[in-house]
Simulated assay, not measured.
Amino acid sequence: MAAQQDQFNVWYTATKFPSDVRPTDLMTFSAAELAHALFVTGRAPEDRSKHGVTSVYEWIHRSTLIPAYIRRTSDGSLVRSDLARELDQSEKVSLSYALGQALTGIFSERVLSVRFLMHVDRYAARHGLAFVPGSRRRADFFGQTTSGGWVVAEAKGRSGDVDLKTKRAMRDQKRTISLVGREKPDIAYGCAAHFPKDIYGRERLKVLAIDPVEEEPEAIELPVDPDKFIQAYYEPFLAALDFGDSRDTQGDFVSVSIDSGIRMGVLRSVVDRVELAHEGRLRGLHNDVIQLLEQQVPAERPGGYFLDGTHMATKWSEALRREDWSESYIDETPWWSG
């Protein structure tokens, strides 16, 4: 069965999650969702007064990995191009790292209704948080769901299958944050994007998510202020609006085009409120933005529009459909066979 144009089909397996999360299911998402996930999971510093458009350049680099090395088959599966398979080891690691983070973002929003997801190190750097000296064992991301609860996530990416060492690391690191803003996370999970070989020898992108209940004995508290969290979340979007070309402020969104073939927008009301916070009116930002989103973001959103009041569009279609991947990938069996 052929998938709709620009739609991707990626299976996930979820282990030890709450009962309302299906143990295995198909995630169908778009290139726009992939671009959005790459953007929000970036870790570049986001204080615009100090770093300007640094994060935008980082995002452009990360986003160009997709049309350069990832291809879409006729059934919507994602595979690596032959060029990607010929990269040296460090380049393969970079690609896997970006895919792992992006698919963690997509899984978080699609399956767990996470509205805001942010790199722990980015928030810590933005607001001067200090961790235990010498401690590097902490999860990659934390975020907030549409119901207001916190999540903690660890991202991994592999060019092959997920081995036992990686699974163990996912279990360990994602439970290294015990509290977010004095609240226990609703859920903490590890998420790996990988290319396992199936019985036909095909290497399709899949996601493995793990949610063990064990907590690290030395787990830390992440002191998060909700207003500062929202400020840090939207600052890279505002930096991109400053960076992009053909800025359009008509309608509900402020939108710009980015050189890497992406158009991005943010609700104008959210932009205005975050700008006020940047000028000193930080108090109440979290509640104000949540209220704006609940008023202006419908449950049934058009493609490319997201829970955080942003939208993305890409021009990756032609590149993703290129058939520069090995014949051994060609598959006429139905995608629902898993």
Rank of each mutant, 00 (worst) to 15 (best):
297 V>K: 08
334 P>W: 05
290 I>W: 05
210 I>G: 05
338 G>K: 13
256 V>C: 07
199 I>Y: 10
245 D>W: 00
141 F>E: 05
77 S>R: 12
53 V>S: 14
97 Y>Q: 15
190 G>K: 09
315 K>G: 14
130 A>T: 04
308 D>Y: 02
304 G>V: 00
323 E>N: 12
332 E>Y: 02
312 M>Q: 15
6 D>G: 04
118 M>P: 09
82 D>K: 04
262 I>L: 14
63 S>H: 06
301 R>G: 11
169 A>M: 07
45 P>G: 10
212 P>E: 15
338 G>D: 15
241 L>G: 04
133 P>K: 09
117 L>S: 12
88 D>G: 10
41 T>K: 05
26 L>T: 00
52 G>C: 03
58 E>N: 14
208 L>Q: 08
292 L>M: 13
135 S>R: 08
314 T>S: 15
284 G>S: 07
205 L>T: 00
278 H>R: 15
192 A>V: 04
229 F>P: 05
4 Q>Y: 08
142 F>R: 13
93 V>F: 04
95 L>Q: 03
224 V>Q: 15
80 R>P: 06
338 G>S: 14
287 N>Y: 02
326 S>H: 04
302 P>Q: 15
191 C>W: 00
158 R>T: 07
86 E>G: 12
53 V>C: 11
278 H>S: 15
332 E>D: 08
53 V>W: 05
151 V>G: 02
309 G>W: 02
289 V>P: 06
63 S>F: 01
138 R>L: 06
196 P>W: 09
40 V>G: 08
47 D>N: 13
96 S>R: 09
278 H>V: 10
10 V>M: 03
60 I>R: 12
102 A>I: 00
23 P>N: 14
296 Q>R: 12
8 F>N: 00
51 H>V: 01
45 P>Q: 13
286 H>V: 04
190 G>M: 08
188 A>W: 02
34 L>Q: 00
255 S>Y: 03
216 E>A: 09
83 L>H: 06
131 F>D: 10
174 K>A: 12
58 E>R: 13
146 T>P: 04
46 E>L: 08
333 T>V: 01
153 A>M: 07
110 R>L: 11
208 L>F: 01
260 S>Q: 14
309 G>F: 03
246 S>Q: 08
307 L>R: 12
246 S>F: 01
37 A>N: 14
84 A>N: 09
209 A>S: 10
158 R>C: 09
299 A>D: 13
326 S>L: 04
219 A>N: 02
18 P>Q: 14
310 T>H: 03
108 S>N: 15
290 I>N: 13
33 E>A: 14
256 V>G: 07
50 K>Y: 07
304 G>D: 04
222 L>R: 08
117 L>T: 06
100 G>F: 00
275 E>D: 15
149 G>E: 12
6 D>C: 05
197 K>S: 15
98 A>R: 07
247 R>P: 03
130 A>L: 04
108 S>L: 13
22 R>E: 11
89 Q>K: 11
175 R>A: 10
92 K>R: 10
238 L>T: 05
331 D>A: 13
169 A>P: 03
320 L>S: 07
259 D>W: 03
172 D>I: 03
76 G>K: 05
105 G>P: 00
152 V>H: 07
146 T>E: 15
99 L>Y: 09
291 Q>T: 05
84 A>W: 01
149 G>T: 02
70 I>F: 00
87 L>T: 04
272 D>R: 13
316 W>L: 05
261 G>M: 08
157 G>W: 00
212 P>M: 11
272 D>I: 06
300 E>C: 07
76 G>A: 11
328 S>D: 12
21 V>A: 14
95 L>N: 01
